[in-house]
Amino acid sequence: MDIFLQQIINGLVVGGIYALIALGYTMVYGILQLINFAHGEIVMIGAMVTISCINFLVGHNVNLSGPVLLTVSIAMAIPVTMLLGYLIERVAYRPLRKAPRMAPLITAIGLSIVLQQAATMIWGKNYVPFPAILPTDVLEIGGASITTLQVAIIILTAVILTGLFLLIERTKLGRAMRATAQSPDVARLMGVNVNTIISMTFMIGSALGAIAGVLVAANYDQAHAYMGFMVGLKAFTAAVLGGIGNLGGAVLGGILLGIIESIGSGYLGDLTGGFLGSQYKDIFAFLVLILVLIFRPSGLMGERVAERA
């Protein structure tokens, strides 16, 4: 039982991170019907900038406790990724808004390569360790271990999600975003500045990406110029699983994916007598995805799109 609980906790932590990143994908998709493949790289840049900030502050003998130091550094990294998100949209996506939908997909892949290489130039080819500034206390819950950082990840994810929902549902900006997602033309008629809204969406998504990047780096104690690709891919899968374009779906998809992976690689080996083991971890996610999509072609929480072409 403690093993099972442990696996659920493992899954929740990873799932929370997936959910944060998946939100970035899904927000952009909801408005532009565009897969922002460079989002994984924004996550990476967020982590790298934060680590550099922490090292800079520690190097200049700024005496702050670990969590405060981290918060200050994230606060410095967020504007960087927001600017980056804004620029990406401006340079690579906006000129192609009326182009065939494959075109922005290719610029996104190109951007992804460029950002990876740029990060290699700045931070080098080595893995960058996350500075040991956070407490590493381990809590015991019913025989399962969880670190304070992991507790913080779960709480932080929940807080950010609530904030985002309030933003989307209760504020004027949120209303404008929803209107743009439904129909940009009508939104424009109603006096919404669609371009500003799209830029805002990219910036909010990038800010979430930066936070997620820091959490990934802190949880695994390292960052790397190529780290964004894999985690981005998983998060995108999560977004589709939940129904892409749907915020709640992204969260549900992320957490579900995290738990499926954890339980799958933890138990399947024993259940199948060693035939299917943890080497198939990356497959479980996709198998579940395919099964879900066969029965619900728009994802778990996606709206059913009428059959029209």
Binding site: V91, A92, P95, L96, A99, A103, P104, I106, T107, I109, G110, L111, S112, I113, V114, Q116, Q117, A118, M121
Partner: peptide, 14 residues
């Protein structure tokens, strides 16, 4: 080399 390759992809599409 990879950086230029990525840029070429972006520019062609734009």
């Amino acid at each position: 080399r990879m950086l230029i390759f990525g840029l070429v992809m972006i520019v062609i599409m734009l």
